[in-house]
Nucleic acid binder design. Sequence first.
DNA 1: GCCGTTTTCGGCCCGACTGTTTTCAGTCG
Length: 564
Amino acid sequence: MSEPTLPAPAVAALLNEIGRRMELCEESPFKFRAYFTAAENLLTHPVPLAQVIAQGKLKSISGVGEAIAEKIIKLHKTGTHPTLEYLREQHPAGVLELMRIPGLGPKKAAALYQSQKIASFAELEAACHAGKIAAEKGFGAKLQAKILESLAFEKKNVGLVKIDAGHARAFAASTALKDRHPSIKSVIPAGDVRRGCEVCGPVELVAIIDDEGSDAPVESSPEFRVTTTPSQHLGAALIFATGSAAHVSSLCDWAKTLGMDLTPEGLCRGNDALPCETEAEIYAALNLHFIEPELREGRGEIERAKTGVWPQLIELKDLRGILHCHTVFSDGSNTLDEMAEATRKLGQEYFGVCDHSQSAAYAGGLRYEKVCAQHAHADELNRGYAGTRFKIFKGIESDILEHGELDYTDEQLASFDFIVASVHSRFQLDRKAQTARLVNAVSNPFTTILGHSTGRLLLQREPYDVDLDAVLKACGEHGVAVEINADPHRLDLDWRLHQRALELGCMLAINPDAHDTTGLLNQKWGVLCARKGGVEAKHVLNCLDLAGIEKHFERRKKAALKQQ
DNA sequence: GCCGTTTTCGGCCCGACTGTTTTCAGTCG
């Protein structure tokens, strides 16, 4: 029997750990960055790791040289490496955790461990309350207060994971549950996952058992809740396990007003059980339009479902093209050719490249000469696509500068097919200045789409302070589409604001913000988020077909040139 | 630590902000 080996993602995670621990040990930035680069390239390498190693081709992966290749082989085979073990002896794992707190980088985290042996959030919090952080050299009262604020944010988010991890966790748990209990016919993930929530709490599963008691009882835990049900009660069990609590409570109230009782066992009138096996049958028996799981948030959906006026929620298959993606021209990992081809293979009709603009120096933002080179390359690729139903659109993710200016001259802006304008800096501006900045940016006639409009990073960073209503209003007035950034870290614009954006006359655009070909699959999270917002295909810019979007871009550009 | 060479070592991702200092280190995007 062969030894168990680690797959590429696990090895990449360990390379990242080596890099981060080297940072703590104040190794050369170039040295630890080499580990991050190698990890990233290993992750996106198309050939399985075991095969690359067997063929002796590790060093053909960019960023992998002699030293890192040796480490990859050992990590793959044994799960560890003497260098990693040595680094682990220098700092406990908790010190790495400290670096999640904004304002605590490797130097400061290492300093706190060195002088006060702080290696956990609890110890950090205690030290803050005792005033010991403010007193530390290089720290101060402001930083101490900021750390306490971040610790409160972390506490609030304990046990929550982002949508992609939530789904992975729920589906893995489903499989494990089925394997352990042969009497289970099938398992359906419910709870936050089924409602498409942007962050998910404990795993909720519904297991269908028609032959209860034939094997060990199914156990739940605080992180992992299982409802077992015979298939004739599946609908009710699913409704209760899916939630939300507010939705279920209102639904039960509504049932009562109709003289019925809704329980996890089903719907009944007095002592008579009503024949409702599925969710659809239950909603129908309650005289309601079927309410999709994503809409079950207790935000008036039951009242609306009584009226029969109901949205035709967008589906993944409604998307016709992909906009806002990065390539190796800036900070992406795949070439324009690879990204476009992967998009075409997903059945899409167009690909809008949007690398970073020149001010985003940290992300390899494009000086205009490089933009021209990319345009020439896109033109060449488009000649290859001539006669097919596929096209590359030349876009840019333009940084929004301090007062809302875009990052190129008007003449240069006019050379793009479309422009996504996004904030990547100056998050601390006050509300008035930030609002004016964003309104100014979307008032620029060259702006086509407002990118990740609040700058939030789920479970990591709060949105910046801005009067979003004023910004959305300006987007509506100027015909600028508002992005639903489909990256699971962002999912920004928040679904709670989708209807408001639509009321104000905005189009939406579901954009993956992909930095490699795998990132194109982010679209499914964006669609889930849009469904939660009650969005229909007709509201979404990239549900336009190739001819439609081409016309849209051309019309806007013509208007922009006219305004000059 | 990797890469690409002028093939054996120099360059690699940089500019701005923040809070700490009292001229700048550390962090961030």
